[in-house]
Nucleic acid binder design. Structure first.
Length: 663
RNA sequence: GGCGGCGUAGCUCAGCUGGUCAGAGCGGGGAUCUCAUAAGUCCCAGGUCGGAGGUUCGAGUCCUCCCGCCGCCA
């Protein structure tokens, strides 16, 4: 029996689960459901990564022990997944005793083979990044990620001789075109491997600096540092080096990661496996980010999408469908409730839900809700069946190659064709004519095709697809489904089966909006007063929002509400320096009363010296999308007035507290 | 700075090895069936395929340069 093993990354527990976690995990869940329907023996692993400096710091901040802290956050992840329809086989934690043992065994094996050595390391250590930087990597003496001054630390550490396997890895990637997919990331990795010798990987931290980690088996003064701990979860979960699970599921594994951890998975991990004498994984599947209003989600922007909230508003099925349909695997995609609602209404309600509704209703009316036996198939029927078979083949082929969006697109070609078939076959006419024979064939063709659609949707929308099949009088038996053969077979639905008399699988919804959220739909006339709440999916009594553009907009005049979208706040300049890479720009830190000051890159260098700005109160557009200017991210804009050749800052008549809103 | 990717209809994107490649879905406009969830079906988009050159009988599709985004590396 073919086997299929899929993993998500183990999620670092310094933050709560967000949309990105949800996407990766739902994809993994769908892949595993898909492969199971193909008849494979599947295993699905997810979990949490719980060691390291940042955890210790976060725990201190929360006033609890690291162990209590990670227990708490890890629990949040584990509790989330059932709400997303995710059924994993194992939830691993890097603090599990079994995992620790495997890490130590693996380290010992690589150590014994001579690929781990003790060496001196001096470097600039950034606690935020949990890593060292070389002089060259620092920007202006600061960590390029966090813009803080790292600490110089010289110490002895253990290193993994990664460079030794560089040539092997490159050849392996060249020999296996799908090893890293999509191709863009494969290219990226190849260019990493071509851009010079890999540096050996530092894999330890002295206990004097970090104790929250796994002790090295060959030196009790050290703990293991991140990758030899975290990545090992993929094999420790299987009980390596012993046991049936490892023998069964390795190396037939599909890793699933977001692009931010490409290098560890594409370079470190295969070379680590090679050094320990293990086979490399089958495929590394790399996806992009979900963007909100063209920007990465971040807490400071307040645009973090909560998976549970979306499910609460629009339902699990729509959410899962949207994630898989909207993102082209590998590329970044935009998340918006408008788009979600659009997919839900257009694809699920109008096309699919309505298909079920109309066909089941006709079956009830014409055949008392019992599946009729088909008679002779006409050319039109055969054409539809050929199209259906093609759509199913394409779906499976694409889905297996992680092209979920295209796969669903293929399936919807069938859904649309079925709606078209209803119109052209016009069962209501056949009924009036009393042509029961032909009517039976048409209805059977529809019902059987709808069954096929439902079966293919089981991996994506398990709940909805199960309901669909139930409406067709069928129970889902995962082991009995042979998805790979559905395209080649016909007649899975037995005549005589009693089906539902009505169906309302995906009610149309209106966009639900938060009270303070900017209006983003066509309606420019005020927001609905009821604001937040649940989706109004019952038959909307009110008419859909009127689209007409307000006359004010046409005249270049804006509504008060439009003005309100601009969040202008007063802030205090707490730090200023010249931009390292641009002579017209200043890097300014402005205190807006938030957790930490905003970094703003301003084109003021020609008019003000850093000293002149220091301590001043300035007006800042606080909700401008962040943007990189010459390598530094600017998180807002300082308002100023151009006067001839000069420039004057907008100021207030008296001191105000940082973060005060201008209105 | 080096390498890579992207820039195609309002939006999201297909277009592999050059010759029905100027497309799909959504949105918008029009028509129409009536079984159905104000759903379905049909018709309509006159987009210089980022810009400029070049190769070719022929180029979104190959080459060069430029512009704008993005990523990786340094």
């Amino acid at each position: 029996m073919d086997r299929f093993y899929v993993t998500t990354p183990i999620y670092y527990v310094n933050a709560k689960p967000h949309l990105g976690h949800a996407y990766t995990t739902i994809v993994a869940d769908s892949m595993r459901r898909f492969q199971r329907l193909l008849g494979k023996d599947t295993y699905f692993l997810t979990g949490t990564d719980e060691h390291g400096d940042k955890i210790v710091q976060a725990a201190e901040k929360a006033g609890v022990s690291p162990k209590d802290f990670v227990d708490g956050v890890s629990g949040q992840f584990r509790d989330l997944w059932p709400h997303l329809g995710v059924e994993y086989d194992q939830f691993i934690r890097t603090t599990d005793p079994e995992h620790k043992k495997v890490v130590q065994a693996f380290l010992q094996r690589v150590y014994d083979s001579g690929d781990i050595y003790f060496g001196e390391y001096g470097g600039h250590y950034c606690y935020g990044c949990e890593r060292f930087y070389t002089e060259k990597e620092l920007e202006n003496g600061l960590c390029p990620q966090h813009q803080v001054k790292p600490e110089y630390i010289a110490e002895k550490n253990y290193f993994f001789r990664m460079s030794k396997y560089q040539g092997w890895l490159k050849q392996h990637i060249l020999d296996n075109p799908d090893f890293i997919r999509p191709e863009r990331y494969r290219n990226e990795v190849l260019s990493m491997l071509d851009s010079g010798a890999l540096e050996d990987l530092c894999i330890s931290r002295p206990k004097s600096r970090l104790t929250w980690g796994i002790e090295l088996p060959f030196d009790t003064d050290y703990v293991c540092y991140v990758w030899f701990d975290a990545l090992l979860n993929y094999v420790s979960a299987l009980g390596w080096p012993d046991g049936d699970r490892f023998a069964n599921y390795w190396p037939g594994v599909q890793h699933l990661v977001a692009k931010d951890i490409l290098k560890p998975h594409a370079v470190f991990w295969p070379t680590m496996l090679k050094a320990a004498g293990l086979e490399p994984y089958n495929n590394l599947n790399v996806h992009g980010y979900w963007l909100v209003r063209d920007t990465k989600m971040s807490k400071s922007l307040g645009n973090v999408v909560s998976p549970l909230e979306m499910i609460d508003r629009y339902g699990l099925n729509a959410f899962r469908y949207f994630l898989l349909r909207e993102m082209h695997f590998g590329s970044d995609a935009s998340f918006s409730e408008e788009a979600l609602v659009g997919r839900l209404n257009a694809d699920l309600a109008n096309d699919l839900g309505n298909l079920y509704s109309r066909v089941l209703s006709m079956t009830a009316k014409y055949f008392g809700g019992v599946v009729p036996a088909p008679g002779a198939y006409t050319e039109e029927d055969e054409t539809l069946r050929a199209l259906a078979a093609e759509a199913q083949r394409n779906f499976c082929n694409l889905f297996g190659r992680v092209r979920f969006s295209n796969a669903l697109e293929s399936l919807w070609e069938l859904v649309r064709a079925l709606n078209k078939y209803v119109d052209s076959a016009a069962p209501w006419t056949l009924f009036k004519q009393g042509d029961t024979k032909r009517l039976g064939t048409v209805m059977y063709t529809l019902l059987e095709s709808m069954r096929k659609v439902a079966v293919h949707l089981l991996p994506v929308m398990p709940e909805a697809a199960t309901s669909m099949l139930a409406q067709l009088g069928l129970e889902v038996n995962v082991d009995a489904v042979d998805l790979g053969n559905e395209a080649e077979t016909w007649g899975g639905l037995q005549p005589g089966t009693t089906v539902a008399g009505a169906s309302n699988l995906f009610p149309r919804v209106e966009l639900v909006r938060e009270k303070d959220e900017p209006a983003e739909v066509a309606s420019s006339k005020g927001k609905s007063a009821d604001g937040a709440g649940t989706a109004k999916n019952a038959k909307p009594a009110a008419v859909a929002p009127a689209p007409a553009a307000s006359p004010a907009e046409d005249a270049g005049v804006i509504d008060f509400e439009d003005f309100q979208k601009v969040d202008i706040r007063m802030g205090t300049v707490v730090a200023v320096e010249r931009h390292p890479n641009a002579d017209k720009l200043l890097r300014v830190e402005v205190d807006l009363g938030e957790e930490k000051p905003r970094q703003i890159v301003a084109g003021l260098a020609a008019y003000f010296s850093p000293e002149q700005l220091q301590g001043r109160q300035v007006a800042v557009v606080a909700n401008l999308a962040p943007r990189k200017l010459r390598g530094l991210e600017s998180q807002g804009m300082i308002l100023a007035v151009r006067q001839g050749e000069g420039m004057e800052l907008v100021s207030v008549s008296g001191p105000v507290s940082p973060g005060s809103k201008v209105s």
